[in-house]
């Protein structure tokens, strides 16, 4: 149990938070990475998912991309990206060491939940609602913006929430392959036999993950209450991230 005391000491020491490579700087890097990757994935994934859902095409792809994403270890993909000539391990502005490689991997791993949930969300709009909209003489575009999208929102939102948790976890794993972020506190601790430090890093990562999830869940609930959406309570199955 001595390691627990070491971890506690590391958490309380001011020097482990501040300064170059301190936990605050790493936390900032990781949050920046997480947010950027999530936004990129939304920018790419949402139009594709919602478009496919609206057209009713490519369902096999949209649904199975999650299965494939789950089977590919994040660690392996990160390792390949870092070992490739490009983007390699160069520092990338405020994103830190191996910033681009990590950013690419994070974006890729945020896509499956966004695409699958977005597609399913549009497809699950009840058929009678669709028919009613058609019967009212709505065009395809009107149907999409005024019927499908509002009804799909809750499920889309839970996909984004899943993606957020996944991206945070993946950003931590990036440290296993020389990436930036808080994971480095963990890996440095373990590789140098300073287990107290490693455990302290793990505590910080876990606490921030829980906070992110709480914030996302709160935002989702708030949005749902405002819309008074009848389908707001629906959530999809979660799965852990590696």
């Amino acid at each position: 149990m001595r390691v627990l005391r070491d971890a506690w000491d590391y958490l309380l020491a001011g020097s482990s938070w501040t300064g170059d490579g301190g936990m605050l700087e790493l936390l900032g890097q990781q949050l920046l990475l997480t947010v950027t990757a999530l936004l990129l994935a939304l920018l790419v994934g949402l139009p594709v998912a919602l478009g496919l859902g609206h057209l009713g095409r490519g369902g096999f792809l949209a649904v199975n991309i999650s299965n494939v994403g789950r089977a590919v270890p994040t660690f392996a993909l990160l390792a390949v990206l870092v070992t490739l000539g490009w983007p390699g391990t160069d520092a990338f502005g405020p994103y830190g060491r191996a910033g681009i490689a990590t950013l690419l991997a994070l974006t890729l791993f945020a896509l499956p939940p966004i695409i699958t949930n977005g597609y399913v969300a549009v497809r699950e709009v009840p058929a009678d609602v669709q028919e009613a909209a058609q019967g009212m003489g709505m065009t395809g575009a009107q149907r999409f913006w005024r019927v499908e999208l509002p009804l799909a929102m809750p499920l889309v939102a839970s996909g984004v929430r899943l993606a957020l948790v996944q991206v945070w976890a993946t950003a931590t794993i990036a440290a296993l392959v020389a990436g930036p972020g808080l994971g480095r506190v963990i890996t440095d601790g373990f590789y140098r036999s300073q287990y107290g430090q490693g455990i302290a890093g793990a505590v910080v990562v876990a606490v921030v993950a829980l906070l992110l999830e709480l914030v996302a869940a709160g935002a989702q609930r708030l949005a749902a209450r405002e819309r008074r959406d009848p389908l707001a309570t629906v959530t999809t199955g979660h799965h852990p991230t590696g």
């Binding site: 149990m1 890996t187 455990i199 829980l210 999830e213």
Partner: peptide, 18 residues
Amino acid sequence: STGLYTVPSIALFPLLVP
């Protein structure tokens, strides 16, 4: 279980090490 799945694996293993 929702809370648990939120914790990244690389942080869960160190928490079990003690």
